[in-house]
Every structure is written in structure tokens, then in C-alpha cells.
């Protein structure tokens, strides 16, 4: 068992427990202090661990941008689950999405980063914000009562962080395996399986555009439509069904609306 990691996990659990909204005697400042301690110790732990085990040493240890985006992501995720005002939660979630998109760019998934921003920050979060504004409770209360308290915060934090601690202990317990020769390495020795063969089958001519790079749309499209063509169609059907379902669920139950959906005949 790695005691430094266990201590960092326990500190994180404590800070989340203190940060969760709890009516009057709020302990946000203490929680934030413990949270900063947690993040600092976690970063130091990662730094030491990567320094010990970075066998190939091409990435020169811990990436500065990874640290930055990871910090933003964890802090904004904490803010989402701990902030008493739902609208602020939604806005912190946008921040989380941007940080995750930054991490995607670090992982050579530029197209997915843009897609994530467009779909999450552009579509899903706008829907959330609309619903938060539509479904605001009556009266002039700034924060509703049920947003000031949580159900069983101790139990939730305990169970979740025991899970996290187990996962992290198992992950960091041994040495990571060194470089595996079986892993492909070239730019597009990328394990494209079928997709790569399709693209490579084209006769190479002078002045033709270079081989597609990982992270763009081309390889992703080929992969989607060659290996995952059927699931892609199913995903389209799923979206259509959920569109119809959402309209049916959220529609007002007016008798004039007709026979469909309400499950009752118009009474005339």
C-alpha cells in the first residue's frame, strides 16, 4: 500500500466533504484550504512517480499543460458538485468542458476537442441553462432550500473515495511496464486496420496530399464508417428516438393536442 497516495486521497475526501453545501455552518474556506493541500500533494506525488518511472523519457516528465488543464478540470468539477446555485454549476461545467478539450488536444485528438466544445458547451449546456431558468422555483429566494443541503454527504464521500483510493492504489502500486515493441509508433503506422488500408490503397502520385495525421477528421471518419458503420447508424436512430421521446415527454398534456402521445382520446 502506498501511504502517500492514501493520505492524498483521504485529504481529498475531507475537502470534498467540507465543501459540500451544508446549510448555515458552512466550512467552505477550510474545505478550500484542504483542497489546495490535496491538489498540491497529488501533483507532487505524480511528479515524483513520473520522474521515477518515465522509462522512455521522451515526454520529459510531467507536462506543464497537463498539470494546468488537470487542475482546472478538477477544481471546476468540484465547483460543479459543490456550488449551491445551479446556474453557477452549469457555468463551471463549461469550464470543465474547456479544460477537458485542452487535454484532448494534448492527446492528439484535436477534432474531438472541437466536437466536445461544440456539443457540450454549445448544445447540452445551453439546454441545461434553459431548463434551470425554466424550472426555477417561485418566490424571490436566491438559493432554494434543497440546494443548501445534501443527502448523506459523509456516506457518499466515503464510498466514492474508497472506490477512488482502490483504483489509484492498484494503478500506482507497481512499476509501469517499459516500452512495448509491439506497439506501433510511426505517424500513421497508427493501427488503422481496415481504414488505413483503404486510405493506403489509393495510388500515390506526385503532389498528392500527405498521409492523414491522427487527430484530424479523415482517419476518424474512415474508422467510423469502416469499422463502426452499423453502430453509427444505430446511434443516428437513437438520436431520432430520443428527439421524439423528449418532445413527447415534455409536451403539455392538453386535450386539444390530439390523439397521439397523451394516451387518451380527445373528449368531444
Amino acid at each position: 500500500m502506498d501511504y502517500a497516495l492514501a493520505v492524498a486521497t483521504a485529504l481529498g475526501a475531507l475537502s470534498i466533504y467540507l465543501l459540500l453545501p451544508r446549510g448555515r455552518g458552512s466550512l467552505v474556506k477550510t474545505g478550500a484550504l484542504v483542497g489546495v493541500l490535496t491538489l498540491g500533494s497529488a501533483m507532487l506525488y505524480l511528479l515524483r512517480w513520473v520522474g521515477l518511472h518515465e522509462v522512455e523519457s521522451q515526454g520529459a516528465g510531467l507536462n506543464v499543460f497537463f498539470c494546468l488543464f488537470a487542475l482546472i478540470a478538477v477544481i471546476s468539477a468540484t465547483a460543479v458538485i459543490c456550488h449551491p446555485r445551479p446556474l453557477y454549476c452549469a457555468l463551471y461545467f463549461v469550464l470543465l468542458t474547456l479544460a477537458v478539450a485542452g487535454l484532448f488536444i494534448l492527446l492528439f485528438a484535436q477534432f474531438m476537442a472541437i466536437v466536445l466544445i461544440i456539443i457540450y458547451a454549445g448544445a447540452i449546456l445551453v439546454t441545461y441553462v434553459f431548463v434551470i431558468m425554466l424550472a426555477s422555483p417561485g418566490g424571490n429566494v436566491a438559493v432554494a432550500d434543497y440546494d443548501r443541503v445534501t443527502t448523506d454527504p459523509l456516506l457518499a464521500v466515503l464510498v466514492s473515495f474508497v472506490l477512488l483510493g482502490t483504483v489509484l492504489q492498484l494503478m500506482f502500486i507497481g512499476k509501469p511496464r517499459a516500452f512495448m515493441a509491439a506497439r506501433p509508433s510511426g505517424p500513421v503506422a497508427v493501427g488503422m486496420t481496415m481504414g488505413h488500408k483503404i486510405l493506403a490503397g489509393k495510388p500515390a502520385q506526385a503532389g498528392q496530399k500527405p498521409a492523414p495525421k491522427m487527430g484530424g477528421m479523415e482517419l476518424l471518419g474512415v474508422n467510423l464508417y469502416s469499422q463502426y458503420a452499423l453502430p453509427l447508424e444505430l446511434a443516428g436512430i437513437l438520436l431520432t428516438i430520443s428527439l421524439v421521446g423528449a418532445v413527447m415527454i415534455a409536451r403539455k398534456n392538453e386535450p386539444a393536442a390530439g390523439v397521439l402521445g397523451t394516451g387518451q382520446m380527445p373528449t368531444e
Binding site: G12, I16, L46, W49, V50, H53, E54, V55, E56, Q58, G59, L62, N63, F66, A70, A73, V74, A77, T78, V80, I81, L96, L103, L107, F108, S160, F161, L163, L164, V167, L168, M171, F172, P176, R177, A178, F179, R183, S185, G186, P187, K213, M214
Partner: peptide, 22 residues
């Protein structure tokens, strides 16, 4: 494009686990 070492992979995996648990 450089090969990603397993240590670097673990950084991302641990971050994903933390977000999931939050």
C-alpha cells in the same frame, strides 16, 4: 509523433478516475 509511455498514460487515467468519482 512520439510514443506515449505508460507513466504518462497513468496520469490521464488517474485524472479520469478523479473526475468520475467527483
Amino acid at each position: 509523433m512520439a510514443v506515449m509511455s505508460q507513466a504518462i498514460l497513468y496520469e490521464y487515467l488517474s485524472l479520469g478516475a478523479v473526475l468520475f468519482v467527483l
